[in-house]
Design a protein around this nucleic acid. Structure first.
Length: 268
DNA sequence: ATAGCGCCCTGGTGGC
DNA sequence: TGCCACCAGGGCGCTA
């Protein structure tokens, strides 16, 4: 369920609350979230590092980690021997990322907990907790080489909110495709971060039948579609994501964006 | 090029 | 009222 606006909302929360902080411990409650990575390797790569930035690529959250020296809690990149590692997260359908007090009892479906050092002012220690009811989501600590091989991430299409993306780029991807336009928008190689909700909303707002053969879109329609994809993603991000009982932000707050047509099949 | 699977998993739904 | 079969949902990989 989390699509670009929801992941971007989480990114902003992490940027504000987690960036620059040191990960003091990593506990894997459900190893399925590691998607094959050895638990020991995950812990060893994560514990003691500092989150240097919080990036988003499509629906992926990427947090580069820097080795921290014990004497420098907010330290500088060190450890020449270990390759740089990035915390790579995809929430898939039901994954949730919550920042909670370490003393707070975790809720159900907890998969991974990352302890974060309290502030120098003695602020209470917190944990970044990864919950996932279906365990389809993934959290791994990967080197640059491994990151480049992650299926989907390597072939990720362009960011729809980046200035370089436009109708011509979209049309180039749709050229010759006879399948319907909507599933094409769900293909992350065509455009990054769009899922069911925003594909429906943008097509409706652009006045394009989702069943239209993708390759049959005119330049004018592609122009409208690009404009509406941008608009709807921006509006939803401004609203902190789509209102749903499945999605909450880092602080547990629900989204405020209400789709017009998504999940309203059969209604006028 | 594309359609149609199965897989991953569990809560909610619909039928009885 | 309770039971249970069924199904949605994103993304990948495979086959037809």
């Amino acid at each position: 369920m989390p699509e670009l606006p929801e992941v971007e909302t989480l990114r902003r929360g992490l940027e504000r609350s987690v960036r620059g902080r040191r990960i003091t411990e990593a506990r894997v409650v459900n190893e399925k979230s590691l998607k094959g990575q050895a638990e020991a390797e995950f812990r060893q790569r994560v514990v003691g590092t500092t989150v240097t930035s919080v990036d988003r690529r499509g629906k992926y959250l990427l947090m580069p980690l820097a080795a921290t020296t014990d004497t420098e809690p907010n330290g500088n990149p060190g450890a020449k021997d270990a390759p740089p590692v990035t915390l790579c997260i995809h929430l898939k359908m039901r994954g949730q990322l919550l920042l909670e007090r370490a003393s707070e009892e975790p809720g159900p479906y907890l998969c991974i907990r990352l302890g974060l050092a309290g502030g120098m002012d003695g602020a209470e220690a917190e944990e970044l907790r990864f919950y996932d009811m279906w365990t389809w989501g993934e959290m791994r600590a990967l080197t640059d080489d491994e990151l480049a091989k992650v299926p989907g991430l390597a072939e990720m299409g362009e960011e729809p909110l980046a200035s370089g993306w436009n109708a011509d780029r979209l049309l180039a991807k749709l050229k010759g495709k006879r399948g319907p336009i909507k599933p094409m928008l769900l293909d992350q190689k065509v455009v990054a971060g769009v899922g069911n909700i925003y594909a429906d909303e943008s097509l409706f707002r652009a006045g394009i039948d989702p069943r239209r053969p993708a390759g049959s879109l005119t330049a004018d329609e592609a122009e409208r579609l690009v404009r509406e994809i941008r608009a709807v993603l921006t509006e939803a991000t401004d609203g902190g994501g789509t209102l749903s009982d499945e999605y909450v932000d880092l602080d547990g707050a629900i989204g405020r964006y209400t789709p017009r047509v998504y999940d309203r099949g059969g209604e006028p």
